[in-house]
Structures are given as C-alpha cells and as structure tokens.
Nucleic acid binder design. Structure first.
Lengths: 140, 140
DNA sequence: TTGTATAATTGTAATAATTACAAATTTAAC
DNA sequence: GTTAAATTTGTAATTATTACAATTATACAA
C-alpha cells in the first residue's frame, strides 16, 4: 500500500485513485499549485478526471487538515501539503507563491474573542526575485 | 479641506470625489467590506459611480499603502483601512472578517530569500462566535 | 455471486468576482 | 479658453468556483 493510500486511510478517507493522485501531485510539486495546475498535472494519468473532482478532493483534504489553501489576491487559490509550520510569500507581479522560513507560531488558545480558531496563515507580499531581475523598475 | 482629501494629497493622489468617498467609507465602516459593499454603500451619494471605479480606487489605495486587502478563501476580497498592525480572523461559515489583536510583528529586513517584501498579513480561520451560536454542530 | 444502497466522480450549466478596454467626462496646465 | 492628461464610466470578456443531476464505482448483505 503506497504512502498516500495509507495517509488517507488513517484519516478515514476512502483512498480513491483521484484522491491519491491529487495528494501525490501535491507532495511531488511543492510549488503551491493552483487547481488548474493540479488538474493539468494529473489529467494525463487519469484521462476521465473532472475538474470538479479536483475541487471536491481539495476541499476534503483541507477539511481533514492534510493540506492548506493559500489565498493571494488574484482570485486563484493555491494549495500546500501540510508540513512544519511555515509562512508564504506571494509575488504580486507573477502570482507565484514561495515558502519562507519566517513564521508566526501561535501558542494561544483555540479561541480568540469567542471565535473558534481552526487554522492560521502568515502571508508576505511583494516582488519575487525572478520578477526583480526581469524588471526592477516596477518597484511598486 | 477634509481629512481624506488631505490624506490623499499627502500621498500625491489627486483627491477626486470618488476616491474621497471610498476612503471615507472604509474609515467609517471598519468591517473589512468587500467591493460590493463599498459600491452599494456610496452609490447613493454618487449615483453615477461605476464599480470599475471602485476597483481602480482600491487598487490605487493599496499600492500607496493606505489600505490593505485581505483574501479569505471564498473568492471575495476584503479591504481594510491601515492602522496599527493587527491580525484578521475569517469565518469559513459566513465569510465575515474580524480584527484580532493577536499579531505577528515582523522586524526582519525588507528582503527574504531575494524577494522584496512590501507587506504581510496574518490570517486566522475558523468559525466565528455568531455562527457558533447558530449551529455549533457544524464543527468542521 | 448477485442485488442494493451508498459514496464518489463526472460534465454541464450557472454564478459571481474581476479585468480589459474604449468612450466620455473631468481636471490641470499653458 | 484651448489642449493634453488624468479619471471615470459602462459594457463585454474572462476566469475561478459552485450547483446539481446523471453516471459510475464501491461496499456490503443476502
């Protein structure tokens, strides 16, 4: 039994081929891919795959805290395999998302002001090193 | 000269009535409104207002660091007048965004891993106190 | 094994936020 | 006051996401 199948079973999720493939893709492509990227990335191996399924799987995996979603400000979600807590950096030029070590570690309670905290994210924004190289002028 | 006009001039932005009204709205409605809310909120005073203008103004104000945008994961941006640094909490049930005192204060440099940092945000997610009251079952 | 209930996937259509863009209007400079 | 530049407006296009019903696969009992 491969490790993704096992991970899913441990979380009481029946390990359909679609779910395993999405998980595998996220593990092998740690670039915070979008739904589109995930879909295109595994469509070759699962020709009947529907984009709706990718959405469904991602939603399920996030609910079960196996992955996290990251929202930049460009109307596209990015997805990230959960590991050690870390922050993210999103380039406002090209939209790519990078990991950064810098992080906020929240030691507080599960409640803040009466709200139940399920998760948190630290997101930096700016211009990534690649875009800086290309056109440093655009220095908004 | 009112305080919004003054603020805009200080930032070298010509203080059109649309810009002033958006700014005023954000200052008076500190609930992290969406574009839709801002638009509806001032349409009464500016009957010719276009939603495109609201988008334009918000983009400009964010570039000039007068406001911040907050992306939950529901495909809707929220906007916040800049003040003391603070974190945000987004309810995954109703979509509302709340301020929280809890925050990450970044003292590091303006560069991380070669990326130019322009901004950062700390976002908590969970179920807000109102939704908890209504239906505590949905305890994802 | 066979039938049946349940769960998961698929495809299409609908929704909704955002952006592109060109025309119209306003503002500022000379 | 005329002209150029900046801003606003409205429409159309784009794109991500969701809703939903139909199909397919899976699990389980007889």
């Amino acid at each position: 039994m491969d490790k993704y199948t096992e991970l899913l079973k441990n979380k009481n999720i029946s390990p359909s081929i679609q779910r395993v493939k999405v998980l595998q893709y996220l593990d092998n492509n740690r670039v915070h891919p979008t739904v589109e990227q995930i879909y295109s990335g595994i469509k070759g191996q699962l020709p009947t795959l529907s984009k709706t399924t990718v959405y469904n799987v991602l939603q399920l995996l996030e609910e079960k805290k196996i992955i996290k979603s990251i929202s930049g400000s460009d109307g596209r979600e990015h997805y990230d395999f959960c590991r050690l807590p870390h922050g993210h950096f999103k380039c406002t030029e090209c939209g790519d998302v990078y990991d950064v070590e810098e992080n906020f570690v929240y030691q507080g309670s599960q409640m803040i002001d009466g709200h139940k905290i399920n998760d948190y994210n630290l997101l930096f924004k700016g211009i990534c090193r690649n875009c800086l190289k290309k056109g440093g002028e655009n220095d908004k």
